[in-house]
Simulated assay, not measured.
Amino acid sequence: MSFHGLKMLYEGKAKKIFEKSKDEVVIYFKDDVTAFNGEKKDSISGKGKINKKISVFFFKILEEKGVPTQFIKDLDETSFVARKLDIIPLEVIVRNYTAGSFCKRYGVKKGIKLKEPIVEFSLKDDELGDPMICKNVILSLELVDGDILEKIEHYARKINEILTRLLSQSNIILVDFKLEFGVKDGNIYLADEISPDTCRFWDKNTMESLDKDVYREETGDLVERYSEFLRRIGL
């Protein structure tokens, strides 16, 4: 798609957001891939198209299950039309198994199934490295009010239940994932994306990664693994 004439509102590591109207934006998925807070960077042909397809698939399912999302309609292979939101400056991390920074932080082995899902928050700020933040600090700094924070956590847990159940049918473990939310007219919506860039997906039998850890750890071909995930979920 050509974005000629559309104002770019934001460019992140993996997406660009363009203003379509006063109520809508276009979210474009780039082929860029980064790791370790941008220290490792590449452009991998086909990645953006896959992530967009997976995100739309998940957003549609979550809408059907009662989770309001930013998604409005498909546009082309690498972009979709979405609601323009005021993005809440928090990243919501849901963990079902130990992996990544959680293992480093608490000195535990990778791959342990947690007794119950954990919901964590980090401050959405690239310059600070998205530091972890607790509920008390969120409320004390008035980043959001208590009702919104409660609703965000409720939706995060609901999304986890829906996607865990869905992916288990394809022999995929939902290890952990990151969510973002936004507000419009007082209503909360799931925003951004849900893809192998923002989630950890493991094969149930081999514990092999089907996500960006393949790129982080240099254990395989990223597009090949993402494509395998697509195939598993029937896309």
Rank of each mutant, 00 (worst) to 15 (best):
F177C: 05
G5K: 10
L123A: 07
S168K: 11
M1H: 07
E116N: 13
E153L: 01
F181I: 07
S101Q: 10
N205T: 08
D31G: 11
K30V: 09
I194N: 01
Y97R: 01
T98H: 05
A35E: 13
T34I: 03
I148S: 08
F201Y: 13
D145R: 07
Y215A: 06
T164V: 05
T98L: 02
I88E: 12
T98G: 02
F58R: 00
I152D: 00
K20L: 10
E116G: 09
K73L: 12
A14S: 14
R231P: 09
E19S: 09
D147T: 12
S168L: 04
S140A: 12
K73S: 15
Y10R: 06
S55H: 03
K104S: 13
K49I: 08
G107I: 03
D130T: 11
K204D: 07
S170W: 01
P131V: 04
E208K: 07
N136I: 05
S43W: 05
T78V: 00
R157D: 02
E218G: 10
G146W: 04
G38M: 04
C199H: 14
T164E: 03
I72T: 00
C103F: 02
F29A: 04
L166M: 14
I54E: 14
K104G: 06
V144Y: 07
S2W: 03
E91A: 11
F80R: 03
F18V: 08
R200S: 01
K109E: 10
E116C: 05
I72Q: 03
N205E: 15
S140L: 07
I112A: 00
S101W: 09
K84M: 02
D86A: 11
L149C: 12
L179H: 02
L179W: 03
T198R: 01
E150Y: 04
G220C: 03
L163C: 10
T164L: 00
K73W: 05
C134V: 09
N187R: 09
A82I: 00
R157Q: 10
T206S: 15
D125H: 12
R165A: 05
H4L: 04
G66H: 06
S21A: 01
I112R: 00
I194A: 01
V67E: 12
S21D: 04
L6I: 03
I194S: 01
E142H: 11
I188G: 06
V92D: 11
R95S: 05
A191L: 11
Q70Y: 06
C199A: 15
G220L: 02
R225F: 02
V94F: 00
K52E: 13
V223F: 04
F36Q: 09
G100S: 14
K110T: 15
N160D: 13
V56E: 04
D31S: 12
R165Y: 05
